[in-house]
Design a binder for these strands. Structure first.
Lengths: 116, 116
DNA sequence: GACCTCCATATTCAGTTTGGATATATCCAA
DNA sequence: TTGGATATATCCAAACTGAATATGGAGGTC
């Protein structure tokens, strides 16, 4: 068996977590991922190019993402597109679930005024 | 003015974030915080002593936590107790809110099967 | 076509952040 | 009183990250 339990691979590195989140919405190319991460966090999070391309390499080696063909109508041939794999989605789901539990506990302590 | 907008201080370092979360439930001493963080994450997150005491020092300097008296009936005089300050709670709330938005977006993409 | 600017990937390097090892002292139980 | 567990604290190497830099090609303008 090779990692039957996703929990053994948690916690995800913050960069990996946010890249997976961005890709969960559909395939994207490198810089498109960085833009998505920044937008999804209201500009609070940024992803430097070093972290970005290094993380993508690692994640590909680990089977979390795959290279995929550019979408229909894509003009720029330089862009390399990535999509999340079933394994990546499984891991992302585990991390989201875990994190949501932490935030739920915080809400129960009235850290935030109310539930969204 | 000294940091009117909490957003300027986001994102919190992961360690600081989780320490604030642990303290949002009430005052705790150093190792008690580490235990709380580990328990709240189902054993996924750990806090090494280096990160723990270094973070507490920084957070005290930044006004996020304060030393406080041991609770009634506390036997061990070695324990140093900390409580979250209003400023710390303000910052924690901002970070929780931001993070919840990210998770909400993930849920809308069916990353997780359903809402808790 | 020549030029210029912007975009995209990629690598390098230095700074930040972290965990583990180590140190010191004290508490508690046998 | 002896030993093991607990608690704070410091140090160091490893992990992780962002910014600077490099390279090359795309697309627009004249």
């Amino acid at each position: 068996m090779s990692h039957a339990d996703p929990k053994d691979r948690l916690p995800l590195k913050p960069a990996v977590f946010h890249i997976l989140l961005a890709l969960s919405n559909g395939a994207r190319h490198g810089l498109g991922i960085a833009d998505e991460v920044e937008a999804a966090s209201d500009g609070v999070l940024t992803l430097g190019p070093g972290t970005l391309y290094r993380s993508l390499d690692e994640m590909r080696r680990d089977g979390l993402v795959e290279r995929t063909a550019p979408p229909e109508g894509e003009a720029d041939p330089r862009r390399k597109f990535y999509e999340i794999t079933p394994e990546g989605r499984r891991l992302l789901r585990a991390e989201v679930t875990r994190y949501q539990r932490v935030l739920d506990a915080a809400r129960d302590r009235d850290v935030v005024p109310e539930r969204a």
